[in-house]
C-alpha cells in the first residue's frame, strides 16, 4: 500500500522585498500560487478548505506597494495599502469620497486594518464594495508581470466570479485614480441587511461632473452584485448628462440601471429585489454625488 505523507501538503511562504522579486516569485513558482495582500479573503478561504495554496507570496514587505501617492496623473494606491489608510488620507478622501467610503465599507475595523482595494478587485466577487466605485471613478489598474508593465481600464480586470484577466506571473501593482475635476463628486451606496460586517445585496456608485450652472457634463454610473461582474452602465450615465438631476432624468437613469441588471437569486437576495433596489440606490447615490460636486 502506498504510504501517504503529510510532506506532500507542505506550503511555501515567500516574502519578496521588491516588485521584481515578487513578479519572479509568481512567475517561477509551481502549483497553486496566491498573492497575500490583506489576507481577508485568502485566509478565510483557506480556513474553510476551499483553497489550498502551494505557494503564498506576501507582498506587504514591498515598500513601494504600501503607499498612497499623489502623482501628476492622479492618486496611486498600492496593492499593499490597507483600506484603513485610505480613510486616514485626507486629500484622497476629499478628492474621491465615494471610493474611500466604498473601501471603508469592506468589513469591520479589524478587516480594514488588513484588506486592500486591489485584493477586493482581484478576489473577483460580484459584490465587492470598492469595485463599482472604482468603475465610476474611471480608475486604471497598473499590472506588473514577466513582460513588464501594462495599464488597463479597471473594468477589464475582472472577467467573472473568481476570474481575472491576469496572466501567470502577473499582479496588480496599484490602482490609479484620475485627477479630480473641478465641480465633480462621487458617491457609493450599498444595501446590506446589517449595518456592518455584511456583503452587499446590491450596490451603486455614481461619479458626476457639473458645469458652472450645475448641469451634469459627465456622469459614470456603476452597479455591484447585480451581474457576474460589476457593471458600468453607460446608458444610466447618459441619462444624467445635460440635466440637473430632475426627477425625470433620475427615473430614466434608474430604469437604465434596472435594465442593465442580470442578477441571480441566492442566499443574499432575489433577482427582483436586486433589480429594483439597484435603481433606488443609484438614484440616492446620484443625489449625493451631485451634492458633493456642488450642485444646489
Amino acid at each position: 500500500m502506498r504510504r501517504y505523507d503529510t510532506r506532500d501538503i507542505a506550503v511555501q511562504y515567500l516574502a519578496p522585498q521588491t516588485m521584481t522579486e515578487a513578479v519572479q516569485a509568481l512567475a517561477e513558482s509551481k502549483g497553486r500560487v496566491h498573492v497575500l495582500a490583506g489576507g481577508s479573503d485568502l485566509l478565510a478561504r483557506m480556513k474553510g478548505g476551499y483553497l489550498e495554496p502551494d505557494v503564498i507570496v506576501d507582498i506587504k514587505r514591498i515598500k513601494s506597494m504600501s503607499v498612497i501617492k499623489k502623482r501628476a496623473e492622479g492618486f496611486s494606491i498600492g496593492a499593499g495599502v490597507p483600506c484603513i489608510h485610505m480613510g486616514r488620507h485626507s486629500a484622497l478622501k476629499k478628492a474621491w469620497p465615494g471610493v474611500v467610503e466604498a473601501a471603508g465599507l469592506i468589513g469591520s475595523d479589524q478587516i480594514q486594518g488588513r484588506c486592500t482595494i486591489v485584493g477586493n478587485l482581484c478576489n473577483a466577487s460580484p459584490a465587492a464594495d470598492s469595485v463599482p466605485a472604482l468603475f465610476a471613478a474611471g480608475a486604471m489598474a497598473v499590472i506588473q508581470g514577466p513582460k513588464g508593465e501594462r495599464i488597463i481600464n479597471i473594468e477589464n480586470v475582472v472577467k467573472g466570479p473568481g476570474k481575472t484577466s491576469l496572466k501567470k506571473g502577473e499582479m496588480v501593482e496599484r490602482i490609479q485614480l484620475p485627477v479630480k475635476q473641478a465641480r465633480s463628486g462621487d458617491a457609493y451606496l450599498r444595501l446590506t441587511p446589517r449595518t456592518e460586517m455584511d456583503i452587499a445585496i446590491v450596490s451603486a456608485s455614481v461619479n458626476l461632473t457639473l458645469d458652472r450652472a450645475g448641469t451634469v457634463t459627465e456622469a459614470r454610473v456603476a452597479l455591484g452584485a447585480v451581474a457576474p461582474v460589476a457593471l458600468l452602465v453607460a446608458k444610466a450615465g447618459k441619462a444624467l448628462i445635460g440635466t440637473q438631476l430632475d426627477d425625470e432624468a433620475l427615473e430614466t437613469m434608474a430604469a437604465a440601471c434596472r435594465d442593465a441588471c442580470d442578477p441571480i437569486d441566492d442566499k443574499r437576495g432575489t433577482i427582483d429585489y436586486r433589480t429594483r433596489v439597484a435603481g433606488v440606490l443609484a438614484t440616492r447615490a446620484a443625489k449625493l454625488a451631485w451634492q458633493r460636486a456642488g450642485g444646489k
Binding site: Y13, A15, L36, G38, G39, S40, L43, A44, K47, G48, I56, D58, K60, P82, I84, G107, S108, D109, Q110, I111, G113, R114, M197
Partner: peptide, 26 residues
C-alpha cells in the same frame, strides 16, 4: 476563523486586526 467575529482581535504594529486572518509568518 474567518474574520467575522473579532474574538481573536489583536494589535499588530498598533493596528487592530483579526489574528485568524494573519499568517504567523507575517
Amino acid at each position: 476563523g474567518t474574520g467575522d467575529c473579532g474574538a481573536c482581535s489583536i494589535l499588530l504594529d498598533g493596528e487592530l486586526v483579526c489574528s485568524c486572518l494573519v499568517l504567523g509568518a507575517e
